[in-house]
Write a protein that binds this DNA or RNA. Structure first.
Lengths: 333, 333
DNA sequence: GTCCGTCTTTGAAACGTTTTCACCGTAGAT
DNA sequence: ATCTACGGTGAAAACGTTTCAAAGACGGAC
């Protein structure tokens, strides 16, 4: 069906090795042969077979990136950062979406391992250290994104989530709010838990401040809307006066939910999210948030991955960026 | 470094062929051997080499999806639709982002072709018919998404953009607006041009209505904001009384730009977007839009692709969904 | 005791590259 | 005229899998 290097060789009247040399080490072959081979390639519409190439080489030129949620702009920005760095190195990034499912996460890890990718970038759903250790033993480096490696066995690129949670909550307290509600995100995810711990720390510093968590809320806009409805359904005196959401998607949903019931943000309830996605600034009430340098995180992660690939013995490195509080109207900014 | 099927065979005391049979045709091999082989696999941490597998098989089990913009939720929803359908068939979807660059689009097409993917789903930037024809000649089916195939040589899944443009604009006229401005998206993209044509048709039906286009505006939130600023900078009597944006991202940007200058939406200027992404409903002023069934489009595209792969001779099929007008506050809904 | 059919296993070939090494011819140096 | 160097080329091996034809083992039927 498809032309192979053998067909090209035949047509150009040279050997297979020479064709390969034209493709990979042009300087080794006589100009005359180069043009004959190129002509043959054009005539036959020859396209290199990556599988054969890779089989021979033992490894591929792609990097796998597994994200928790493609719908979350934080992750797509991060992906673009990684892609950009990869470009510069002649690598390609293949994006896989685990959708916060352990199964899907495992499936994509298997897939990438079978494909012998150059390395794996992963924002893990739960503890994946054991699995990644296997992967690494088989020669594939991995870097965690959006979360530190518990035992520092792997390099990682993340943001100080605890600090982010602290900054967000302290801000809510500083504008006079006292009854804080935290919601969103699978609560058993490390990132989320860290943000919550930061919130607790901030609350502990202020006498009379309380922190409530509203569990059972996932990470999408819809989940946030449901949470907003739930809060609105309470008697006014039982409602919090501020809500801190695990991410901006949830916060945007909460905003919709509250607004639908005539609850004012920020007058009745102040609202802050996390990630500072582009849409946060464009929300009904522009949303305060905690900014993560998503693009930069992606770039950095890819760089670390490549470095580890070049020198597997090097020590793992934990890069932790500082989150930045962004105040907008949803907290009276 | 990594264990091969040969190592497994040796360890289990069987031949290579038997190991392969355990992996692919379990019923052909004696239970006793199966367990010995499985034990060996576990002990050695054997992982199939996909490159070798694919080289032998001649084709891979992945489908490539090239989108114009990963940051646009319309495309990520579409991707999830495709992914979901692929899952059910044991295929994987690899997502590539052309970022509205002809170069990047070409590079990913090359990459997928070299990888001998099972098929390609593409939302093309410009005319790619010639290139896709080549691809198909070499045995890889392709389906267009978000746009019809000009000459109907390829199957496609799209929305009636002309109708969408018409619906949006007619709605603006029905609420009494007469000076319509169209903006956003590379104007040389077919999808955008169709929407504009629809707008023209609607305007032509109403005496005294005018349609202006504001060129040089791309497809991101930032571009929209700049457009909003530009409109705000005009003398009040030169401003349009309604703006139709090529997509919701741009519309959200325009909304920010106008609001920043104290121009009221919809009182001063009504605003409508396209795609109806989740964030549209959550905007400062909830955004009217034209809904595309993104998820369904992705599912359908993947289905068509697989069908064409199974029977390359079948006629191409143009699936065109009807867009749906969604009225919200930004047009006084 | 022979034959036949079934079940299981094996060895070899093939997929399309890249790389290694040996070879050849030519040109320049002696 | 001979030797050396060198640029260019080609043949063959290797990568790890799957498939296929063939052979082996075993039991039952005659």
């Amino acid at each position: 069906m498809t032309a192979s290097i053998r067909d090209v060789a035949e047509r150009a009247g040279v050997s297979v090795g020479t064709v390969s040399n034209v493709l990979n080490h042009r300087e080794r072959v006589a100009p005359e042969s180069v043009s004959r081979v190129n002509a043959a390639i054009a005539e036959l519409g020859y396209v290199r077979n990556d599988a054969a190439r890779q089989l021979r080489a033992g490894r591929s030129a792609t990097v796998g990136l597994i994200v928790l949620d493609v719908r979350n702009p934080f992750f797509t920005e991060l992906a673009r950062g990684a892609e950009r760095e990869a470009d510069a190195r002649g690598l390609s990034v293949l994006l896989a979406n685990s959708d916060e499912s352990v199964d899907r996460e495992a499936r994509y890890l298997d897939l990438f391992e079978q494909q012998r990718v150059r390395g794996i970038l992963i924002s893990p759903y739960q503890e994946v250290g054991d699995r990644l250790r296997q992967v690494r033993e088989r020669g594939i480096p991995a870097v965690l994104v959006d979360r530190q490696s518990e035992d520092h066995l792997f390099s990682s690129v993340s943001v100080d989530d605890e600090l982010g949670g602290y900054l967000a909550t302290r801000h809510l307290l500083e504008i006079g709010r006292r009854r804080i509600l935290f919601t969103g995100g699978p609560i058993d995810m490390r990132q989320i838990d860290d943000r919550l711990r930061g919130a607790r720390r901030a609350v502990a510093e202020v006498a009379g401040a309380t922190l409530e968590t509203l569990p059972g809320v996932a990470s999408q806009v819809d989940d946030g809307r449901a949470a907003g409805d739930a809060v609105a359904a309470r008697a006014a005196e039982d409602r919090p006066d501020a809500i801190f959401c695990a991410n901006d998607l949830v916060a945007l949903g909460v905003l919709q939910g509250l607004s639908a019931h005539g609850i004012s943000v920020p007058d009745d309830i102040a609202l802050i999210g996390f990630d500072d996605i582009d849409f946060a600034a464009a929300a009904v009430v522009p949303l305060s948030s905690v900014r993560q340098p998503s693009r930069l995180m992606g770039e950095t992660a890819l760089r670390l991955l490549v470095e580890e690939g070049d020198d597997p013995a090097r020590a793992s490195e934990q890069v932790v960026f500082e989150p930045e509080l962004v105040v907008r109207a949803s907290t009276g900014g």
